[in-house]
Amino acid sequence: MTSATQIEAEVEAEVEVARPRARRINGEGIVELLALPVLVVIVFLGYLWWRDSAHLDAIESSSLNWAAVRVQTWQHIRLTLVSAAIVVWVAVPLGIALTRRGLRRAAPVVVAVANAGQAAPSIGLIVLLFIWLPSWSGFWVSVLALTLYGVLPVLRNTITGLQGVDPDLVEAARGIGMSAPSTLRRVELPLALPVIMSGVRTSLVLIVGTATLATFVGGGGLGETLNTGITLFRFSVMVSAALLVALLALVVEWFGRVLELVLRPRGI
């Protein structure tokens, strides 16, 4: 009778096994997630302490004065958010369109072109646009360049994400009577969302980093102080600006990760 009781025990075990409750993130995950902001805050406080106690000459103090830095930080954030918003607005619908029956064949071509475009150096793109569009403000030229740069990761991931949805699920949705737009909205997009958000995160990081170059075309941003430091050869200014930019970039990246986590549908 051992085999019979063994089978019964297995059946029991299979049913009672604690299949984990579907949570977005567990205890360890939260600790990991909070590690970065804590680190950033510590470094920033360290910077403030240095700034207070350091001996800066006239030029350095004027470059690093808080009003200017605050304005530039805000410009930098604006550049990032505006560009990111436009990227999502353009790349996601385009990605959706390229996975629908009509345009499916065009998808690899479009992605290949975008890929080739990525080979263009960011500084080259910004400068070219600047020279080519003299009537545009520095801000908008930068936004255009950042948007062009940020489209590829989101486009590619939207396509991959949608293609990765189990076709059986799509068939099940149509099979029980959901219309095509409804299936897209309620089944395909939610299931593709993790991959799409990963692309948005990559794009955000790309954009915030490239936004440092906006200074070269008058777009503002923390790159300005950095540039001042380099041209005037003041190390403290250079390092300060570099540090602040790096911290901002890390915060934006962290924000992207949080967004990814929050928007991920439960149960996946």
Binding site: D168, A172, L191, R266
Partner: peptide
Amino acid sequence: DDLRRQIGYVIQGGSLFPHMT
């Protein structure tokens, strides 16, 4: 679409949508 809403459709594995309860 209307037709399918009046016909039950059950496939292998259940094909439940993982992101819905």
